[in-house]
Amino acid sequence: MNGTASGAAGATQDNAPVTALGGVSGTQQPASLLRRVLLQGKYEALAMLRNGEQLILAVVLPLLALVGLTVTPFLDGLGGSRIDVAVPGILALCAMSTAFTGQGIATGFDRRYGVLRFLSTTPLGRGGLIAGKALSVLAVLCLQVAVVSAVALSLGWRPQAAAWVPGLFLLALGAAAFTALGLLVAGTVRPEATLAITNLLWILLGALGGIVLPAERLPAGAQSMVQFLPSGALGESLREAFLAGTLNGGAALILLLWTVIAGAAAIRWFKWN
């Protein structure tokens, strides 16, 4: 039911405490904020990892893309070896899979089934729920990075040691931007539409958004545009980080802007029911 209440004055009188329930007594307190967020993060991460479709999106498809890019000539001439150029883009794709598509779809259906409303009445609250979701994205992303890196190393990937600090920072920033975008979509349209939009954008941005294929390998019209997309900013800056060991400040700023703008829009327009 949509709408507002005016003149509603519901109340309970604050007097005698409730007697023991379930053999426990005393006024209830919430668990600590850290514990609540950690618990929710663990719960959401496990739910994501138990979902077969999400696993395909999060792990199987990026690995297929990785293998595909190492056996085809799309990336030839851009770096020392195909795998060195391919891996950063695949890591970026992992961030988009989990933070945007996976998390967006899960949130959309949680919204449909009233899960968001129920959890926001518990001590977790809306803030804790969002923090838990962000934490679960980071946890799953860590697993993806570990799996993709292990497979890539076995295929001959040799990243510079200095690349990991800017690389992981950019991945986290990219995950934040895609999480905010995923929440914006999940909170404003029906879950079926979220499913369609996030999957379609995953394919479009994955193929043409500068995430897996560098801008110079895209059609001329797309080249100048993709660097402003979160996919292009993340893909290009990760390639720079892992190939040259440098942090692209401009791309980081673009990712930050996407995070702030999509986050603010999600806060403004997210519908909880």
Partner: peptide, 15 residues
């Protein structure tokens, strides 16, 4: 603005 509830006043007691 859709006004669904206007003029509800209630008190609920413990127990």
């Amino acid at each position: 603005m859709l006004r669904v509830v206007s003029g509800v006043s209630l008190v609920a007691q413990r127990g």
